[in-house]
Design a protein around this nucleic acid. Structure first.
Length: 121
DNA sequence: GTTGAGCGTT
């Protein structure tokens, strides 16, 4: 009879983490940043929560200023979650931060064309 | 000297 209670108890203790909700990665999408924030300040603000392996802020090539959002990668997801849980909703340089998990994005450039087997001849 | 939702190469 204890088996049933065990099953129920174990179920209650089991983490109800949705298997189809991988809304967690070691990459964090940080938005709401001030237009004066740079990667160094962002890393310095997040490196205290874990080991930051990558920090990327998006800039505008027309105005030369930051787009107001960037990406922060951690060595472990646990650190990223802690950082998000700790810095999400907080404020940096006078502006509130909006942190979310980054989506996978191909890197390299806006477009890449493979060389044709024709050799250009 | 400005503005403020977002998911990627300035």
């Amino acid at each position: 009879m204890n088996r049933n209670l065990m099953s129920v108890a174990r179920k209650a203790l089991t983490k109800v983490h949705s298997p189809n909700s991988p809304a967690t990665n070691n990459k964090l999408f940080v938005a709401g940043l001030s237009w004066s924030v740079d990667e160094r300040s962002l890393k310095d603000a997040f490196c205290s929560f874990g080991d930051v392996t990558e920090v990327r802020i998006l800039y505008d090539k027309d105005s030369g200023r930051s787009r107001g959002f960037g990406f922060v990668s951690f060595c472990k997801e646990d650190e990223a979650v802690s950082a998000k849980d700790a810095m999400d909703g907080k404020a940096l340089l006078g502006r509130p931060l909006r942190i979310s998990y980054a989506l996978e994005r191909a890197r390299g450039g806006p477009v890449v064309l493979p060389r044709l087997p024709n050799g250009g001849r």
